[in-house]
């Protein structure tokens, strides 16, 4: 294989790129999935984002905030992806998506803390709700598929998943409040 690096990124920066991406992969992953809730769509945007990050890494200034830079690249990829989409598949307007993105960035530290508290909160979730979350998220199932597996109606499944998410939200919020975060 020839030198895998594009011209603008010097060879000795390969390790740095891999290290920074690994350090920030959760943040970037969650950021894109926040703006694009549908999983397959979000994966597509993430792949494009990684390509651009790699290609543009030469313009990233060492020592500055990699996460912020990566999220900015990701937001542009989200907007570019939206342009190719049928309007009816998009829930929000571009303007409002920018508002959501801005709020996500403003709240980035608090959200990161919440996400760290999530694993502990998942453990505390009642077994039945936990199983639904597992089916919905681990198995990647649609609500219909989860409902069929759990032998519930679609409406009941939707409600139970909603309850589970709100329980988790309460839990992470409470956990942070207890740890003295705002």
């Amino acid at each position: 294989m020839a030198d895998p690096l594009p011209g603008r990124a010097p060879a000795d920066r390969v390790d740095e790129f891999v290290r920074l991406l690994a350090q920030n992969q959760r943040r970037l992953f969650v950021y894109v999935h926040t703006l694009v809730p549908h999983r397959d769509d979000a994966d597509e945007v993430l792949q494009n984002t990684n390509l651009v990050l790699w290609r543009e890494f030469g313009s990233f200034e060492p020592g500055t905030n990699f996460a912020a830079w990566a999220c900015r690249v990701a937001l542009n990829q989200v907007l570019a992806w939206r342009k190719k989409r049928q309007r009816d598949r998009l829930q929000f307007s571009d303007e409002f998506l920018a508002v959501v993105a801005a709020e996500t960035e403003d709240a980035a530290d608090a959200l990161e803390e919440q996400n760290r508290a999530l694993a502990g909160c998942l453990e505390k979730l009642p077994a039945e709700q936990r199983e639904l979350v597992r089916l919905r998220y681990t198995e990647g199932g649609s609500i219909e598929a989860v409902a069929a597996t759990a032998r519930r109606t679609v409406v009941a499944t939707y409600r139970a998943l909603s309850r589970a998410r709100h329980t988790l939200h309460d839990c992470v919020t409470r956990t942070l409040a207890r740890e003295g975060h705002p």
């Binding site: 959760r26 992953f29 969650v30 950021y31 894109v32 999935h33 926040t34 703006l35 809730p37 999983r39 979000a42 508002v99 959501v100 709020e103 996500t104 709240a107 959200l111 919440q114 996400n115 999530l118 694993a119 998942l122 077994a127 936990r130 199983e131 979350v133 597992r134 998220y137 681990t138 990647g140 998410r165 988790l168 939200h169 992470v172």
Partner: peptide, 27 residues
């Protein structure tokens, strides 16, 4: 606005957490 963002973020974090076999082990 913050509430919405926290819920979208929670959803995204669950997608992330679910990919970790240790986080959401079967009962």
């Amino acid at each position: 606005r913050r509430y919405l963002v926290e819920h979208l973020n929670l959803h995204a974090a669950l997608v992330w957490a679910a990919a970790d076999p240790r986080t959401l082990a079967r009962e």
